[in-house]
Design a binder for these strands. Structure first.
Lengths: 300, 300
DNA sequence: CTGAAAGCGCTTACAG
DNA sequence: CTGAAAGCGCTTACAG
């Protein structure tokens, strides 16, 4: 019950595997293969349930029709959706995708890049963690197609796809302002990623433009973490205090923080949006203020 | 700037690639390679940043150190977490994983299985959609290692990993009963999957055992869908009716339905758990009544 | 202790 | 129109 190979077909038909290869790759016309012969080859291939060995193909051609995806965490619904779209589009083009979660750790992404290089992926889609500039630069030098997603390094010249974080954040903040909110807080993390910074800047710009002004006590910059104690603490500071210093709206810069935040808010028995309005970036199950733009990525 | 191969190293050192291969695969001892020579090989390999070509290796050995994962939808947080764990464990063992979302469609999973076969994956982890029994049987016949996850087919003899859905559901229902709930509803989907059925049965058993009895009007079996209209409808039926017929608790059989349900409930302005208690299966951001058991899956 | 050689399953010039 | 042959980069009996 071995898998059938090109050779098996060639032998059984008494022709060369060259010919079989041509036929099965749809080059019958190009090489003017005898119509009848071609039919026979196709028939037998079907009968034997021939499946080309992609590994052998890959070795020979240097193309594996595989793309490597490195994101922060596939368990994060934002990246889950992203991964889904990428996988789907890739499948449509006949590509496979190997998923890697870097957990925002540059050590991890470095290993993963190496692993993907060994696997001879045809291209990369990467949401780079902080401090991975060097890895990315190296990768670009290696000439393998690469697109950065959701993040980018301003100082590196590469393809990238991001939402306009500045704009999205600016708009979201303005939205809250338009609703009459006066004390709009920002809860974000301390990752020095261009997209996070843009989100922060958009928020500030909206406050300044509207004349509300930036209030430092309303900006909570928390260490990146999987754990919600910091968020809980921040929420308490923003809501359990003098009436005059309370936040009446909170903008979360990531869906993860948004989810944690919502939990905390409801634990505190606060009403949304009565006590405090909430807007979060890329929250998959609630507001969607920004939609991830995923497009056809990569065909050689 | 080509990638360096075994041959490059061998040539530069004036030795055979056989020897280089032995050294680099840690078989120096086994073949009693000259210690000094071995050192030189290793040094040069490092200097040239040698990366073994896994594709060539794969072709030669028939092992790709790759596993194929087919799940319903990677964007679903439950599967996201699962995928994450699998990826992580696989990486630890030096394996790559190719992700596929079948979207519960057997046509899709069939294509995906074929694709993975062509890629010569070493093993499969599959959460099979309905009506994919045949595909699974075929796969088992092909002798490639396979483990079913989250679902299984009672009539097929295979490895599988599932939570004890019956038990989990039974316990969850009892939990609600213990809290004094009398009219506990079940919102589930119509997928004829063993795990869904088990969840339903567990629920019923608990009701019967406690003497509350099964009330058909409290069981809502909805068509599987990405869309929340059916759930919304069901919620309304369960909550907006005569006091005597209202549900005072709802058990959702999937986290997706649970999330939709929570949205609907809050839209209706109902209070949880005041008006209605809610328990949901594998809800990643709220109650966790069952934890997915993921263990080391597969080393050859 | 080390090397020459075969072969994994393909593709693709080259020749006729 | 079709086939013999080389080669992708590795591993692994086999020989010495």
């Amino acid at each position: 019950m071995k898998k059938t190979s090109l050779n098996d077909i060639a032998n059984q038909l008494g022709v060369s595997k060259t010919l079989v290869s041509f036929v099965l790759n749809g080059k019958s016309k190009e090489y003017r293969i005898n119509e009848e012969l071609a039919q026979k080859v196709m028939a037998l291939a079907k009968e034997l349930n021939y499946q080309p060995n992609r590994i052998a193909q890959g070795l020979r051609t240097g193309k594996t029709r595989t793309i490597g995806l490195i994101i922060a965490d596939i368990a994060n619904p934002f990246f889950g959706k992203l991964g889904r779209e990428i996988e789907q589009e890739a499948a449509k083009q006949g590509y496979r995708v190997i998923f890697c979660s870097s957990d925002e750790k540059p050590e991890k992404s470095e290993l993963q890049i190496r692993m993907l290089q060994q696997s001879l992926v045809d291209g990369y889609i990467i949401s780079p963690p902080m401090n991975s500039e060097e890895q990315i630069k190296k990768l670009i030098k290696s000439k393998t197609p690469l697109v950065l997603i959701d993040r980018y390094f301003p100082q590196i010249d590469s393809n990238y796809i991001v939402v306009d974080n500045f704009d999205a954040s600016y708009n979201a903040t303005n939205h809250l302002i338009a609703k009459g909110r006066k004390r709009i807080a920002l809860v974000t993390n301390n990752l020095q990623l261009a997209n996070m910074i843009d989100r922060q800047e958009g928020y500030k710009k909206a406050l300044v433009d509207s004349g509300l002004g930036i209030k430092e006590e309303l900006i909570k910059i928390l260490p990146f973490s999987h754990d919600n104690t910091d968020v809980a603490q921040a929420i308490k500071e923003l809501t359990l205090c003098d009436e005059a210093k309370k936040a009446d709206a909170i903008l979360f810069s990531t869906s993860k923080m948004g989810i944690m935040g919502l939990e905390c808010i409801s634990e505190l028995g606060l009403n949304i949006p009565g006590d405090v309005a909430v807007v979060s970036f890329d929250n998959p199950d609630a507001y969607k203020i920004c939609v991830s733009p995923v497009t056809a990525i990569d065909h050689p």
